[in-house]
Design a protein around this nucleic acid. Structure first.
Lengths: 192, 192
DNA sequence: GATACAATAGACCAACCGTTCTGTTTATTC
DNA sequence: GAATAAACAGAACGGTTGGTCTATTGTATC
């Protein structure tokens, strides 16, 4: 599946796109950093845009699966796992290498919604929403679809705020709000 | 202050930056759209980056002041005015010309936090936070600073979600969450 | 050792970028 | 009507971009 050169290319591209943006980082920068010839890039991905799409797709899948693992290590209770997402975010925002969410950046840099990178970014949002929705279903909360969307929106808000203020506070605030939201949803089940 | 040519330039630049992004829209496109000579741009703004900064600053101030007017037309009660922000957002997201928040796009397109455009975008976030905080203070809610930050984060979340799903739903959800948040804050004052 | 394939470096391309310069036209003011 | 300044159109500039082509090198397999 993944030749070593291809992997190296994806890794370096991801790092550069993350820290310097998609349009700003040129092909040559990526090649230099990866120590790879130009033709290997074009043989493997076809174009810069397709490389961007590949980076987004790989990053999304990796992020989601890592997130699932981390929250399952925090607790077995799906209710606690939902809040765990924001704990993971909190650690992430605190780390020095945090520089915002790639997918939000992609949406901003590719305003044409039909473009491949924009679609890849949208797919990630859907994966996040589905993740939250699944946890809500597991926690037997009412209206898990709506709750999932709300939690995903909360996560997005914390992400784009953290990019600007560079602190874990947005994650803490988002967690607090999520807690209130879940509590509310929980008690409404038993309400008259 | 503002010569007609300068205003025209700002207006066209804003529209293009909003719909097609900052890096993507070239100088020539702006000039063509505005029907203005290249030298008038450089005489008025000095560079493309400074034009971007001018657009961001003007848009921010205009948006904030318009927001203040619109929520004060909705209600005199500061509590209702907070929720009114999300009602305004709801209408905004529904309009055909909505294509996301410029300031979030600017943050994504200028990853260097020290760059002028990034700072201008940050200033807008602070204005929004201050707006919410002021409303919370007026509503005599406890811990208005924290609440203001939470509401601003909620607003950001609804904005960047709306950009992807192109619907007013994020605003409705955000309003619902804000309502729960305010209710909670309100009742906690009288709690034992 | 021959064949085949992948990866290499680097020249090369057309297109576009932001910016500067030149010379002309228009409008304002005295 | 002359003088001043602003706005004009558009050529030209140097630099960069994504992408292609070529010719060479290394490395397997048979």
């Amino acid at each position: 599946m993944g030749s070593p050169k291809r992997e190296k290319l994806l890794e370096c591209a991801r790092k550069l796109f993350e820290t310097e943006g998609f349009h700003t980082t040129g092909i040559d920068r990526i090649l230099e950093e990866a120590g790879v010839a130009k033709m290997t890039l074009y043989n493997n991905f076809g174009s810069k845009d397709m490389l961007i799409v590949a980076v987004l797709e790989q990053s999304s899948k990796e992020m989601i699966s890592r997130l699932k693992i981390m929250i399952s290590e925090l607790s077995n209770d799906p209710y606690e796992q939902i809040l765990g997402v924001f704990d993971v975010f909190s650690d992430w925002f605190s780390s020095t290498e945090f520089c915002g969410c790639m997918f939000q950046a992609a949406v901003a840099e590719f305003p044409d919604q039909d473009s491949k990178p924009a679609q890849a970014a949208k797919a990630h949002l859907e994966r996040m929403t589905t993740l939250f929705e699944g946890l809500c279903t597991n926690a037997e909360l009412p209206n898990p679809q709506k709750l999932g969307q709300m939690l995903a929106m909360l996560a997005s808000g914390s992400l784009c705020t953290a990019r600007q203020v560079r602190s874990k506070q947005p994650a803490l605030h988002a967690r607090e709000i999520a807690e209130i939201l879940l509590e509310r949803a929980c008690s409404s089940v038993h309400a008259p």
